[in-house]
Amino acid sequence: MKSNRAPWYFYVIIIIGSVMMVFPFLDMIFSSFKSASEYALLKYRLLPEHFIFSNYRMAIEELQLLLLFKNSLIRSVSITLVVLITSSLAGYVLAKLRFPGKQVIFSFILSTMMFPAFLFFIPNYFITVHFPLVGGNDILGQGGEGGLAASMLGLIVPFSVSGFGIFLMRQFMISIEDAYLEAARIDGAKELRIFAQIVVPMTAPALATLAIFEFINSWNEFIWALLMNSVNSNLATLPVGIQMLKSAIDPTLTQPLVMAGLVIATIPILLLFIFLQKYYVRGMMNTGLK
């Protein structure tokens, strides 16, 4: 029924548009297999003359790609898990419990989403590096090797709560029937058990949405990771490591390595998105922005 409506030129326009979207990705993938001599050509070519894999081998060695990958993975998995926990705890409280101050706290959490990220880079950088009693800091935050930034905590802790996540979980939990919770309470179940064994399983779809959304966003995050890397170079994630390499040496020499690194940094996440896009898209619709 739908297809009858679309005249042929609809398809022409959309196919041209799609090519413009996909082409940079193809260019990235094909370039990663080109040899250095092909990069020196004075003319553009999409396909490599011979597919060579040495760029990947060199990227793994020179870029320490495996370390970057590991850092990105630890960071994204940790942020995702912590955000799931903090969001569902707070979402449950705001959806299902009655207590003084509830409206104020809910409005406050909504308003946190209005604050732009750039406002926090400077103060949070200072707070993270001078966090008391971590990374060798004393109680006044002095004397250590970078506070939270002395370890992976610097990449994780400042992202451990998400206003959007709390809002999403609260909206979802509001639709859970109070009768389920009341029945469990009458049976004498403890609140923490009600939360863990009744509420959390019922919110699985919302948790999936939040998980994939947080995972992709923290995988791609760049500025904060760059700042943490300036304190402690062991904390480089994939985007940071690749960008540092690009600005470090002669661009014509590094381009093949950058391309190979970018393929490793982007293709797994694109595949993840394609398989789980139903959940990601739901997250997008709920915020309306990224």
Partner: peptide
């Protein structure tokens, strides 16, 4: 059109790609 989901996915690819990749490419 047919395959609406497929087209939407293609146009959405840059939104799930790190800006470092997009900027460099």
């Amino acid at each position: 059109m047919r395959y609406e989901g497929l087209w939407r996915t293609l146009f959405f690819m840059p939104a799930v790609t790190t800006v470092v990749a997009i900027g460099n490419v």
